[in-house]
Amino acid sequence: MGKFILKKCLMIIPMLFIISVLVFFAIRMTKADPVSWLIPADVVVSEENMEALRARYGLDAPLYVQYFRWIGNILRGDFGKSIVGGTSVATIIARSLPATFELAFGALIISSVIGITLGVLSAIHQNGPVDYIGRFIAVLGTSMPQFFFGIIMIQIFAIKLGWLPIGGRTDPSVVTFWDRAKYLILPTLTMSIAMISTLLKYSRNSMLEVLNKDYIKTARMKGISEKRVYITHALRNALRPVMVIIIFRLPLLIGGSVVIESVFSWPGISTQIVGATTSGDYPVIMVTTLLIAATILVSSVLLDIITALLDPRVRLGKE
């Protein structure tokens, strides 16, 4: 087992290396000269000055030298500076990442609670009203663009009813917990909808499968109350695969926040990436992408390890 974990962890290093090379070269191989982003379009600059500028940013060295300089700096904790605002990339990330995490965790909690509850109830009352409501929500979640759902929520709860703010994360008058929380409700709810439908389908199927197992029949034959059959016997076994899905979803939620952050003008990391993409702010794009890739890679390795710990078949069957 220790060997298995060690092997999995060691795999992260070459994967991260490959991803960093890909990110760096993909972004730097574009035709556009990074220096040209620094100069307003209407200013004429002599070739000499351009060279000087390039030398100042270390852009005159061969690409591979630049790569090692860049990755070396990152390993030492120096993430570079944004070429648009001049702020250090570390500051940008420190400012925006917590906002995205807040959103992702909120969505994860809401969607787990609603998705699993509805999924389990749909399985218990198969073809009953709850099952139909569940199916309807699942269809809605997979067919509606998230931003469209978000706009509808804004129209109803922020504009028509005026209960919740239209967007943003906070305002200067914030004092109580509720003041902060009300900014979070609409974006997290919107973000949850797609995941609720995934979790709902998954936990419904998993529960149905378990309910057909022999040990459930045995438990029923022993005369245990239906409630206890569901809670102590079925639920525990049905939810194990669902848990794996939930952990696996967190990184996807961070990536999926791009559109949500845009709809609700949420100042998260995706907003930064989109902004950097439109303005060609390559130091920001490179570091943020690398960071997200690293997070996802690490969490998927953790997921593999957790799955293996939970289920010896995975460990012994494949590796």
Binding site: M15, M29, T30, G255, G256, V258, T277, G280, I296
Partner: peptide, 22 residues
Amino acid sequence: VRISEIFSTFPQLILILVLVSI
């Protein structure tokens, strides 16, 4: 398989954003 894993661990939208910027 490794390549496909790298592609699927990346959130698709982020990958697309990077490619759009390229």
